[in-house]
């Protein structure tokens, strides 16, 4: 069977989710490799979600929020930006290519951009190949939850303040 990547997309309720909706209304063509999870703000995306998604075999994770300064909750996406920057360093230490984690700002009007990002990201992930965590043995290592908990603590501590 041909390998098809699995991509998890976190979208904030106010911009990116509406942008994705717009892409749908406009019937834009996109690969179907992604599954979307709506959160109220991209700032809600707990580092633990991303790590656990990778540990469960996601080949790529996309976090998408409102453009900077446009966040519905004033500055949630600034927190997101810091967290993702740290997480990229972190997942690299786990042996994942940091390109597997992507952060995008997509507004409610940018259906085109949403489709474009999904297309690009899917291509990129296809080129990178399956996640090394897909293998069951590697899965167990990361799923040992104390590690994940500790890691998310470290990220949380690094992110207070603006």
């Amino acid at each position: 069977m041909d390998w098809e990547p699995k991509i998890l997309v976190f979208c904030c309720n106010w911009c990116s989710y509406a942008g994705a909706d717009l892409a749908g209304i406009a019937r834009l063509q996109m690969p179907t490799n992604f599954r979307m999870i709506k959160v109220m703000c991209s700032g809600r995306v707990d580092p633990e979600f991303i790590l656990s998604a990778f540990s469960k075999g996601a080949d790529g994770v996309l976090v998408s929020g409102c453009h900077l300064a446009d966040c519905h909750y004033i500055g949630g996406n600034y927190r997101t930006r810091r967290r993702i920057a740290l997480l990229k360093i972190l997942i690299e230490q786990y042996g994942l290519n940091p390109k597997r984690l992507r952060l995008e700002w997509i507004s409610a009007a940018e259906g085109q951009k949403f489709a474009q990002v999904i297309r690009e990201f899917t291509e990129e992930i296809k080129a990178l190949g399956p996640s090394p965590f897909k293998k069951k043995s590697a899965l167990a290592v990361v799923e040992a939850s104390p590690t994940v908990a500790k890691v998310s603590t470290a990220v949380a501590e690094a992110s207070p303040g603006t």
Binding site: K6, L8, R35, I37, V39, M40, C41, G43, R44, V45, D46, P47, E48, F49, S52, A53, K56, H72, Y73, G76, R79, R83, S152, T153, A156, E157, S159, P160
Partner: peptide
């Protein structure tokens, strides 16, 4: 917005309707 929930290191903070275990269940299902 849930920004504090995403940052809470001990998991004490929850967002009603978007609890950690609810979102985790979504991730698992996806």
């Amino acid at each position: 917005c849930g920004a504090c929930v995403g940052a809470c290191p001990s998991g004490a903070m929850e967002q009603k309707g978007f609890k950690d275990n609810q979102l985790m269940a979504l991730i698992d299902a996806a």
